[in-house]
Design a protein around this nucleic acid. Structure first.
Lengths: 149, 149
DNA sequence: TTAATTATTAGTAAGCGTTATCGATAAAAT
DNA sequence: ATTTTATCGATAACGCTTACTAATAATTAA
């Protein structure tokens, strides 16, 4: 008996969805805002947030709450995980699912009724590994923070 | 050649660490603040944050950036994962580590040099599963949000 | 021991990402 | 045609965290 509110496909909502579909890397709200503003210069950031929220509620997109950082939005609504490059910030989908036997073990051990799994992996992407070998950043104390761009 | 700054064990830092060790469930900064204030009524929230930060830098505690929620702090500095109850908000350590074969597969598939893995699981804890059977909340649209306390 | 340096403090302001409020507007329902 | 409702842009408020400030106490250097 869930009452699903009627949603209008306004020009704003349509363009937000279009731009989100074109951005390969799961963008943040303000990245989407910047893109959308090129086509709708008078749109407000609140409208972007409001529409991303309702699109997520409707199941058209997926809201990603990443650990310790800005929220991101994903057109891929399938359940999947993410891997992030600590150097360039790239956020990729992870193609390999968790083994179901592992989840079963969790249920047995903790007795939880599992509703969702959120997995984030951090590392250095192949491209940045190359760069790291070429350009030596190691005299800096923290590669992660000094080399991010 | 990492220069580690000298750290003083001030009364504030000492008490923050003591209280954190006594709180079983990974507390947030303001939960720690409330506890510490009972012993140091004039301490400021900024001091709590500052000390939690430096204790984490020094490796005495672990900073947990949970998806979409407040930061939490953990005295368990071993690498481990977490499971959270959607109803009562309990946050438990997960005893079962990820299979190493799975991580190997990730490296092969994506070519990343993996630095860290962050796994969060959501579900209903055994205690809340019981309560859910006793007290019927199902006429509400969203159990997760209405029943949290 | 005395003087200079440094880490730390409490208090407060600022920052940042997100959400809520508001009157106005336009689409949908009656 | 009239009412109802969703949505809008603009802006204020919110919650959590960090940065700034002058004051203070611990450490180091002279």
């Amino acid at each position: 008996m869930v009452h699903r509110k009627f949603q209008r496909m306004t020009p704003q909502r349509k363009i937000i969805l279009e731009e989100l579909r074109q951005l390969r890397f799961h963008p943040t709200a303000d990245e989407i805002y910047d893109r959308v503003r090129l086509r709708l210069p008078r749109i407000s950031l609140g409208t972007v947030y409001r529409n991303l929220e309702s699109l997520a509620a409707q199941g058209a997109i997926r809201k990603l709450d990443m650990a310790g950082s800005q929220r991101r939005f994903d057109v891929n609504t399938e359940l999947h995980h993410h891997i992030r490059c600590l150097r360039c910030g790239a956020l990729e989908d992870v193609s390999v699912g968790l083994p179901s036997s592992w989840e079963d073990m969790l249920v047995d051990t903790h007795g939880y009724d599992i509703q969702g799994v959120h997995l984030e992996i951090w590392g250095f992407c192949p491209k940045c590994l190359e760069d790291r070998d070429r350009v030596n950043c190691q005299e800096n104390t923290d590669h992660n923070e000094t080399c991010t761009h």
